[in-house]
């Protein structure tokens, strides 16, 4: 694999059918976006798994850090009033 610097890693996202969002399926190497799409077709859609492909350079993704899990997500854990079951409505009212 000569000149490997050009073959960067791309993350691949596939939409399986219209009405469903693209979903991350894995990654691959390619010299540019066009070839990344072609490779993604061969590697990730050999059995009609998709109708649309996104490829994104891995280094373009900014991710939250696992060690920030607590400060980022814990604040949502104690806010039960954001859920419908927090509110008492008599059964007689019917579905709401």
């Amino acid at each position: 694999m000569s000149q490997k610097d050009n073959w960067k890693i791309w993350e691949v996202f596939i939409r399986s059918k219209n009405g469903i969002s693209h979903k991350h399926v894995g990654s691959l190497h390619a010299p540019d976006a066009e070839i990344a799409i072609k490779n993604a077709r061969d590697v990730y859609t050999r059995r009609s798994e998709g109708i649309s492909i996104w490829v994104v350079p891995s280094d373009a993704i900014t991710a939250s850090r696992p060690d920030e899990k607590e400060p980022l997500f814990a604040p949502a854990d104690d806010k039960v009033y954001r859920h419908p079951t927090f509110y008492d409505i008599p059964d007689d009212v019917g579905h709401m």
Partner: peptide, 16 residues
């Protein structure tokens, strides 16, 4: 397969 990897590189560079 070396030539095809090189060709892909050259093409990507040219396009960029």
């Amino acid at each position: 397969g070396k030539w095809i990897r090189e060709a892909a590189n050259a093409y990507a560079e040219k396009r960029a």
